[in-house]
Every structure is written in structure tokens, then in C-alpha cells.
């Protein structure tokens, strides 16, 4: 998959599904980050915020044919408190924006957002009084998936890219996030 544990984390090697490392690598400051990231990126629990036609493609992607279980992402959580990634799937209206924001705020850190499809990414062709022009106007977005609707392959690609992003994260993320939320 090319998703091995990069040198930056310095915590060891990924062999198959086993992490090989040394105790002193893990216990030194920041040393466990590689293992933490490894765990996080293979257990992406999603909160599906599904509002429109993209939902059809989302369902297709969620089923066995495309099998997100290969990426540890097959478990949807319908409580934001148990979710790691919010999938915003479909058109978001201004009337709905407070709900989206609230769900996002209820998710525990670490959390990520995927904007699924043209509407969630940019408003799509709904450039009008009702529609939010991309959910990044409301919550920070990590991965944008183009398409109206996207192919399931594009969603898999997005999940893999999110995994790479998770893998590069260090403790400084939280400091920056905290600063940004003030």
C-alpha cells in the first residue's frame, strides 16, 4: 500500500499488520506517535452526514464490493462521540449548517472531515440562497473528493490519502489546533 511507517515517526517498521519497534523508541518523547498514528489510520470510524444523492454512491462504497473494511473504515458510528471522521455526503443548506457544526463540535479529537462530492466540497452547481458553498465554510476539511457523485474508487483514494495524512501527524497538530480554535 505504500503506507509504511515513515522515517519521520522513527518508531519502527511495519511488517504486514505487525509493528516492530524498540521500547526506547516508544518511550522517548514523541516516540509513540508512529504507533498511535498507525492505530488511528487503520481504525477510521466514520460519522456519515448524508444529505443528498451522493448518499447512493456512499452506500455503494460502503458495501462489500468496494469493502472499506480493507482500510479499517467499514464501521459507521451514528454517534459523533464515537466517530473519527465525518463524511459530509451531499448538499448542505444554510438551514442545516448549525446541525453540521454541532455534530462536528461533538466529535472527540482527533477528528477529520472528508467532503464527499461536488456539493460538499464547493456547493456544486447550487450557487444560490440556500446552499453552503462548501462545508469548509463551516468546519475544516481534510480531504475533498470531486465528482457528482464521485466514483467509489475516488472515495477509496480519499481514504488512503487521509491515512497518509494521519500518518504524518505529530503532537504539534494538537497545539496548532488548540491555537486555531481560540
Amino acid at each position: 500500500m505504500g503506507l509504511n511507517n515513515g522515517e519521520s515517526s522513527g518508531a519502527g517498521l511495519l511488517e504486514g499488520s505487525v509493528m516492530v519497534t524498540r521500547l526506547d523508541e516508544v518511550t522517548k518523547p514523541g516516540g509513540a506517535q508512529g504507533i498511535i498514528n498507525w492505530g488511528r489510520r487503520w481504525s477510521i470510524f466514520q460519522y456519515p452526514f448524508v444529505t443528498a444523492c451522493c448518499g447512493m454512491e456512499y452506500m455503494s462504497w460502503m458495501c462489500s464490493h468496494y469493502d472499506p473494511g480493507r482500510f479499517g473504515a467499514e464501521a459507521p458510528r451514528f454517534s459523533p462521540r464515537q466517530a473519527d471522521v465525518m463524511f459530509v455526503v451531499g448538499t448542505i443548506s444554510h438551514k442545516q449548517a448549525p446541525v453540521l457544526k454541532r455534530v462536528y463540535d461533538q466529535m472527540c479529537e482527533p477528528k477529520w472531515v472528508i467532503a464527499f462530492g461536488a456539493c460538499a466540497s464547493s456547493g456544486g452547481f447550487y450557487d444560490n440562497y440556500a446552499t453552503v458553498q462548501g462545508v469548509d465554510c463551516i468546519v475544516p476539511v481534510d480531504v475533498y473528493i470531486p465528482g457528482c457523485p464521485p466514483r467509489p474508487e475516488a472515495v477509496l483514494d480519499a481514504v488512503m490519502l487521509l491515512q497518509e495524512k494521519i500518518d504524518r501527524e505529530g503532537p504539534e497538530r494538537w497545539a496548532r489546533r488548540e491555537a486555531a480554535s481560540k
Partner: peptide, 8 residues
């Protein structure tokens, strides 16, 4: 032409 990762 598939997923695009961007940073904030």
C-alpha cells in the same frame, strides 16, 4: 483525477 488532499 481522484481524491485531492489539501491542507488548511
Amino acid at each position: 483525477g481522484l481524491g485531492v488532499v489539501r491542507e488548511k
